[in-house]
Amino acid sequence: MLAFVLRRLASAVPTLFIVVTISFFLMRFAPGGPFNLERPLPPATMENLMRAYQLDQPLWRQYLTYMGNAVTGDFGPSYIYKDNSVAELIGKGLPYSVELGFYALLLALVGGVIVGTIAALRQNSALDFAVMSVATIGVTVPNFVVGPVLTLIFAIMLAWLPAGGWGDGSLRFLILPMIALALPQLAVFARLTRGSMIEALRTDHIRTARAYGLPAKSVVVVHAMRGAMLPIVSYLAPCAAALLTGSAVVETIFTIPGVGRYFVLGAINRDYTLVMGTVVLIAIFVIVFNLLVDILYGLLDPRVRHD
């Protein structure tokens, strides 16, 4: 098991390297630059800026410098948020994004699995139809619609919850953004669960469990659900990585100081170092969660135990 984890971590290094390299050059080949503003800067100023940030160097040297620094954990200064390094920006925003994302993930997973299981057990009933229609809506309605609608109803009309901000970090502030963030994922989990539960309930070993008089609860929970969890666990990795690294839309709507905005803002402003920083962050999350999911998979299914 330890060998498996070490092997996987070792194989993450080349993956990260490739991701960073591709992103670096893609970013540089995109037209524009960090200092191309609507009103062009005087050439002398521009030249000074370029020199200050070493952007006047040949691209390969910039790349080597960047990589050299990145290995030591130095992701450079942000070109736009001039008083901060990229590491500082991410370090400040990440805890907010992770906390919010964690609650959203929990809500999506637990809610989705419960809803999907109910739908599967009442397959093709009115309840199944109703629940799954809502889930379809959850997938199709984007969160920049869900967010404002939630705010309108619960913050403005009913005035039960704050409309935005982090406040003291208490649950009241988190509920609305959490729902907005979780809803589409909850719908995906519900659909996945329904499908794999229906399949699991049709297997031969479920027939065996029923033929041996095991009560319905144990048939569903002990025998069907564990097998049905496998596809859900697979989806968990990309979902967790996406939720925990923040959402630009939800963080903007609810004015949460997370890292989700940086990716979009950095890309729009050609803030090379900030984009690179978020790319590395997301890549690490994806790699780590994929590894966790593979370990979880082995725990759930003895047929894929790792040695």
């Binding site: 070993h205 027939r207 047929r303």
Partner: peptide, 23 residues
């Protein structure tokens, strides 16, 4: 029915490969 099946009347099936829970 669950009092009878599995205790008084039991079954074995055609598919030995899949009749047991793999997990």
């Amino acid at each position: 029915l669950n009092e009878i099946r599995g205790a008084k009347i039991t079954m074995i099936f055609q598919e030995p490969m899949t009749s047991l829970d793999p997990l």
